[in-house]
Design a protein around this nucleic acid. Structure first.
Lengths: 188, 188, 188, 188
DNA sequence: TATGAATGAGGTTTCATTCAT
DNA sequence: AATGAATGAAACCTCATTCAT
């Protein structure tokens, strides 16, 4: 891991632990094992670092899910896979998942151009759109269906984080939750 | 409105607009029309102010919903009322609703004793527990049902905020969303 | 003890424990059991309180020693009594004794008019002057003899405070020290 | 003189003139010709600066006297040299000498680990111990003899500072004072 | 005589950022 | 690419003091 990546990884850990304001750049540099000035050599400002970290995590997540979105096969299967893998990713990367929320509810969000969101969500939105058109999903606006779907990924994650189940039970609950989500979103 | 309340109201507005770190205490005092020291006379630290604001909003919200939770009548009706009034409250108080999320995803959350959450959520949790026991709701843990329910309040709110509908359409969508939530949570 | 005296007593304790700067007037008021404003009703400023405390302690000490200075009998006896009782007073009132030094080495000393010192030291200076004139003490300036005499009161006090002896040994050491002081100051 | 030393020298001057509390760090930085932040780059807090200054002066004084303590020759001669050079150092460095007293009678003294004092006083204590063992000095505890000796250095200094004598008279008085001290401390 | 809410000047300290090396 | 001493603006907070009651 080169210095630039080390800075990013350290920043993630510290931002999540202590917040943006609670994490001085000097501490990031120190714990990343680089000099104070090196951080600013790679990222012009602290906010640029924060945004770069946000984008890198969002990309990672998007790429991770993308294969399931673009997979061959029934839409319903792909839909379920997206849900389940999103929850898995969140459980495996809790700091990254938390960082996204933290950033989303901060005044720094506006520094990310709107286009980027649309871009990243596009394959995903298209799939849902297709599901609605093909009368597999409810006849509601894509945005509403998407919002409710996302709300549930976050809901089940919150539950699992607090519940502390073993791996088998956890898997069971994720499936139960998906069944419930499906009952909510499926065409009737 | 006395000075202490004026400070709280101003802090809400500024924290939501510019973030915690982006809002100097001096600005809060200035715009609240009090001296700098007055803020610290009433709240020992900036963080104490932030926490007090959080608690005051949570109380307000809890009290607002409480009447619907404790109402006479069918559980199903009360359940629907809670959903709808929660969304209404959020739409009428977008700053307060945003502030809660902002605070929830900040490192300051740990300054609020766990007991407070349990306390506030209790009547609400009991209602859902009763619904499950009476086989009106899915046979799942109370916490899971609660998490998914809350996720939907947030989901529909996000959609409505972005969609910019007129009052009638908005009401319609809230009802649609509730029907979907009910399909997800009802006993089958 | 009325409020004014309670403030003085509390101030002494806190100033000695935490220093002038380390002791807010609000803390003095609080621990004295009076309101914030009451302190300023009795003492116009914090410094006025500090000076009043200093003067009150100096007066107390001066009055305490005065009887021995003005006593009938041999100068040598009176001289010894002054030494011994000064040390005793310091041991019985360590906070007051410390406060005097603390104040002496602070920039507030200049707020006490020079005349006051002369006034208080006068009987004492006259006695030493008389001792010198009568060839009981060394033929040196009164001020030098006084400075050396005072230095010894402080020296033995420092030793006793650190040594932690029992009452009998302590008395013995005070007498030994006086014998040494006498060897230093007596006419030869 | 580099910036760190410049800060120390300026702090000495201002602390002695206006006291610890009367000297803002911003004034120290300004008069030292460095930026405000530079002071805190080198000394984490104002108190750390105060302690560093104290230690540096104590070291300087200790090193200055050390050569006389460790010199060849009669103990009595070395003893006299220590007295005289201590007084000379104090007269040549009145600010430093005053600063030590000022710090000694402040609540900051406790920030200096006890060990440091013992360490610095050791050669000095050993010499007095030797003098007592060899029956050149009074058969009293080392600590008592030391305390009385130190008390006299301070006593004569106080006298000279107030008396404003010319160089010759001053030297004469220092010698007289030493003779008196010797009469007090010598074995009989 | 006593109170305590309110004040605002000013202090210490932090920290993102720069720049000569 | 990397460093780290130096910067100075700005933040939080303290606290002596006032004043209406």
């Amino acid at each position: 891991m080169d210095k630039k990546e080390k800075i990013l990884a350290t920043a993630l850990r510290l931002f999540v632990a202590d917040g943006f304001h609670g994490t001085p750049t000097s501490k990031i540099a120190l714990e990343a094992g680089v000099a104070n000035g090196t951080l600013f050599y790679h990222y012009k400002t602290k906010e640029e670092l924060m945004v770069a970290l946000y984008n890198s995590i969002k990309s990672e997540l998007a790429n991770n899910i993308l294969s399931f979105v673009q997979a061959e096969g029934f839409i319903t299967t792909r839909f379920k896979n997206i849900f389940i893998h999103s929850v898995h990713w969140a459980l495996k990367n809790p700091e990254k998942f938390y960082y996204i929320q933290q950033f989303n509810f901060s005044p720094h969000l506006v520094k990310v151009p709107r286009g980027v969101f649309k871009q990243q969500a596009m394959p995903y939105t298209q799939l849902i759109g297709e599901g609605i058109r093909k009368k597999l999903l409810r006849q509601q606006p894509v945005e509403l269906v998407t919002a409710l779907f996302n709300g549930q990924v976050y809901g089940i994650y919150q539950y699992l984080k607090a519940a502390d189940l073993d791996a088998g039970e956890q898997e069971k609950k994720i499936n139960d939750a998906y069944d419930m989500v499906w009952d909510m979103l499926k065409y009737m």
